[in-house]
Design a protein around this nucleic acid. Structure first.
Length: 292
DNA sequence: CTTGGGTCCTGTGCGC
DNA sequence: TGCGCACAGGACCCAA
């Protein structure tokens, strides 16, 4: 089974995994092995990263933001298949209880390599090259093209019930599309939208503006819970992965509908079957019996 | 303004 | 055994 694609919880898990080896540390050497990801990497990126200290690792939506001592911020998007591998010159360097592999031979899709001052190496690997990186002044980060139009963070205070009700009022677009739209709420992808709508008992095809306000409001705590649970699962896998060697970006998580076409609905008392339908080119998984 | 569809990328898995 | 193809899908871009 293909591991889940990086949405907000996966990105947050990667951020948490990288933080202890990057925050406060100097990038001794940055190397770009392939400059054409989703877009061309910024001009002179390797030189602009080399010698900089990572002040802080933040996350906005599905983006990881590394604030540097130069006053610039490295923006990273994992795309579909992006992952981060942490390795060390030798296993004894790892902190107590944490094990990372020794530096492996470069692989085909290793596009960016960061060697930290203490010898820890972070390798960005992205087979499908939907990932992206950019480097901008920290002060202008929020107005960057990739971040400017984003809606509120789903786990933040701005994502309120009244906000969502107002945002979806009179919208003709299917609720599935509305929640996938990063301007509505930032960080949800196909998997967690499917899981959210299943828990809410709302059909993915229903027009957003035709859902009772109380049910729309109910989506807010459900979205928070779905994401929080996934982040917690990511935390568990992080501990496992560290034991296993430091590959970040993927973890096992049990989904109730996503990828379960033909499977039994897990709602107590429901004898429905999980269906799959395609909405604007994307698969929606849902139970037609308990999602209305 | 809203909405929908095309495009990019490559590894995986299926049918024949 | 090998080939062709559908599929995965986030985010930009453009057309209606």
């Amino acid at each position: 089974m293909e591991p889940p694609l990086p949405e907000l919880p996966e990105v947050e898990t990667v951020r948490r995994g990288l933080a202890p080896v990057m925050e406060g540390r100097l990038i001794a050497q940055a190397d770009v092995r392939r400059p054409d990801l989703r877009w061309p990497l910024p001009e002179g990126m390797a030189a602009r990263l080399t010698g900089q200290r990572v002040l802080r690792l933040r996350r906005r939506s599905k983006y990881i933001l590394a604030d540097l001592s130069s006053g610039e911020t490295l923006i990273v998007h994992l795309g579909m298949s992006g992952r981060m591998l942490i390795s060390v010159p030798d296993g004894v360097r790892a902190a107590p209880g944490i094990f990372f592999h020794t530096h492996p031979a470069p692989e085909k899709h290793d596009h960016v390599v960061l060697d930290m001052e203490d010898g820890t190496r972070i390798t960005f690997n992205d087979a499908r090259r939907f990932g992206a990186m950019d480097l901008v002044a920290t002060a202008e980060c929020d107005s960057h093209k990739m971040l400017a139009g984003l809606g509120p963070e789903p786990l933040g205070n701005a994502f309120s019930e009244s906000y969502l009700v107002a945002r979806l009022k009179d919208r003709a677009t299917p609720i599935k599309s509305a929640l996938l739209d990063q301007r509505t709420v930032a960080g949800l992808g196909n998997i967690y939208v499917c899981e959210t709508l299943f828990r809410a008992g709302i059909s993915p095809t229903r027009a957003a503006g035709r859902i009772a306000a109380a049910r729309v409001a109910g989506l807010v705590p459900i979205i928070r819970k779905v994401l929080t649970e996934a982040i917690e699962a990511g935390g568990s896998s992080l501990r496992d992965y560290r034991q296993a060697g430091g590959e970040l970006g993927y973890f096992q998580h049990a989904f109730r509908v996503y990828g379960r076409e033909g499977g039994a609905c897990t709602t107590p008392g429901c004898d429905g079957t999980v269906q799959r339908l395609v909405q604007s080119g994307r698969s929606s998984f849902y139970c037609a019996r308990c999602q209305r």
